[in-house]
């Protein structure tokens, strides 16, 4: 069957999609590429600079510090949210009215606009008036997230865990519910312990959804902007200045278009690379 008919007009049918992708992805990306290799002093006058901005960004201590903070933040929230999400999903009822109640409760944090989450936690954690701030200080611990870097980190991580663990829970729960009863029954007959059931049945069956959960949480947390911006504004000092916050400072605060564009591209490549690494690692056994 190799007698394909050439039909040149077919290109017309894919044209709308090509145009759409070009306008919402390719053209803006190319603009950034364009900025990243040029210098401007205003008046719409540009000079070609080659890879100067890339070298500058890659060698800047400020970028290193933001990247390190970002990696630490993402590492911590993944280490908390993935196991916690799986643990909660395991304890949720499989069916009945309580299953629905749990699901709705779990979905609630995901429905709140991100800047509202930031504002909520800002007020919640204020040492003078916030419930959380008052409680922690009431326990005799000196806590003020607007002044102490550790407290700022603690609050930001707690906020992210509150906001996003639900996503992991919902995905893990969906994975768990797709396991047929026969697996549990067979395990019972085989004399498997609760841990063995988790290790050899539940975890392998959740693998695909957990891969998605890790990828989503990685990408989202690596690009986090709104919530810490509203909560801490990147402070105190630069303590919670993650990559996105730093990027906005450079691009819109200082209006350094060239370095900001170069940083955007490096940022994008890091996200792409790490996502690929995660995906490859988690899907490694799938091929065999």
């Amino acid at each position: 069957m190799n007698n394909k008919t050439a039909y040149p007009k077919a290109w017309l049918f894919v044209l709308p999609v090509v145009a759409l992708v070009a306008f919402n992805a390719l053209i803006p990306l190319m603009t950034v590429v364009n900025y990243s290799v040029q210098e401007t002093f205003g008046n719409n006058v540009f000079f070609f600079e080659g890879v100067k901005w890339f070298e500058e960004v890659l060698n800047s201590e400020r970028f290193h510090a933001s990247l390190l903070r970002q990696l630490a933040f993402t590492g911590i929230i993944l280490a908390i949210e993935i196991p916690l999400g799986v643990a909660i999903a395991l304890t949720m009822p499989a069916r009945g009215i309580w299953a629905s109640v749990c699901l709705v409760l779990m979905a609630l944090p995901l429905l709140i606009p991100w800047n509202v989450v930031g504002a909520m936690w800002n007020i919640f954690a204020l040492p003078e008036i916030g419930l959380l701030g008052q409680m922690i200080n009431g326990m005799g611990i000196d806590y003020n997230f607007t002044q102490q870097p550790m407290a700022a980190w603690f609050t930001t991580i707690l906020m992210d865990v509150w906001h996003w663990t639900s996503l992991v829970v919902l995905l893990a729960y969906a994975g768990l519910r797709s396991i047929p009863d026969a697996y549990y029954q067979a395990a019972k007959i085989d004399g498997a312990s609760g841990w063995a059931v988790f290790r050899y049945i539940q975890l392998p069956k959740m693998k695909r959804v957990l891969t998605i959960a890790v990828l989503l949480r990685f990408m989202d947390s690596f690009m986090i902007y709104t919530e810490p911006f509203v909560l801490t504004g990147g402070g105190p000092g630069n303590a919670t200045t993650f990559l996105s916050i730093d990027l906005v400072k450079i691009a819109l605060g200082q209006f350094d278009l060239g370095p900001a564009a170069a940083m955007s591209l490096i940022y994008f490549l890091i996200v792409l690379l790490l996502s690929w690494v995660f995906y490859t690692l988690m899907m490694r056994d799938e091929e065999q």
Partner: peptide, 14 residues
């Protein structure tokens, strides 16, 4: 007792 189910149950990762 041992039981064989309608849909084969194997431990995938083993």
């Amino acid at each position: 007792i041992a039981q064989v189910f309608q849909f084969p149950v194997v431990y995938d990762t083993m």
